[in-house]
Amino acid sequence: MDTTNNPEVVLSVRNMIKDFPIGQSSSKNSYMRAVNDVSFDLRKGEALAIVGESGSGKSTGARVLTRIYEKTGGDIIFKGKPLQQYIDDHGTLEYARQVQMIFQDPFGSLNPVHSIYHHIARPLLIHKRADKKVIDKLVYELLELVGLFPAVETAEKYPHELSGGQRQRVAIARALAVDPEVILADEPISMLDVSVRLGILNLMADLKDKHGISFMYITHDIATARYFAEKTAVMYVGHMVEWGNSDKVTQTPQHPYTQLLLSAVPEAGQSGRRELGAKKGEIPMWKPDTKGCPFSARCPRALDCCNESFPEVTQIADDHFIRCHNI
């Protein structure tokens, strides 16, 4: 990959695999592979959008990165140091500080019994970023940074007194409190009111551009991925099928699944039936020994070899990659 004028890589994932046990027995086939052979680099001050439908493994990937789930295979390298080394050196708290997460449900991500102040002050205390004297000032500064005015009054409120958009801003302030390098945002706007979504996206864009925070933006909405993120990766059933520069992926999609996804997006003024290229079909259950390309059953361009192996990475343009046998 060309790295000459690119910012440094903060988080690097290589061949990440995550299996979940299904049922009780422990034979090889009683596992479901939620994430398979996923690799990407997240650079400083850049956003990588992970786009996919439900069941594509996009959320699972983020949860492995924040250590909510333990990875099954592959490497996670944060700032040049493998995750395992952080664990061995008792540095998990340090890793936890630098890799933060924002959740989808603004109503579930704040504890209803605690004030906003508690939510922001706790991370500061856990990670000893401030002693008790200056903590008030820091809390108010953070609330103002995410656009919650007046900060003193907001800090005294409880989650149920805030709207969905305001809660999501609190969640962002909480993540920012510990001065993270990376924020993993798991569908941060999909449960918000339409009119406040853009405000949250713009806030994240400012944090990215002005404060150099890297974002992993997980979404099912490819239009907001293009709007917010420099890089986009499209996932299907745990596999990354196409990735690279967001404009290239969305404007000149090459993988049949990306093409299908884009042709399905509703667009005003384009009334009438729109034919979808792909065959109808159910999304396969991926197991550790399943072979081939996950999209082959629905793919209009499927070849014989598509049932045999998952294709290797091909670079089709500058910063545009694809895994497909039939390019």
Binding site: S163, G165, Q166, D193, V194, S195, V196, R197, L198, G199, N202, A205, I222, A223, T224, R226, Y227, D247, T250, Q251, L262, V265, E267
Partner: peptide, 24 residues
């Protein structure tokens, strides 16, 4: 107007959108 401007489009120009300030 604000509501329509709140939806980034998949085609068309890529520019900063402003949506609607405040909360419902």
């Amino acid at each position: 107007k604000g509501l329509i401007a709140s939806f980034p489009t998949i085609h068309g120009p890529k520019e900063r959108l402003y949506g609607i300030p405040g909360d419902p």
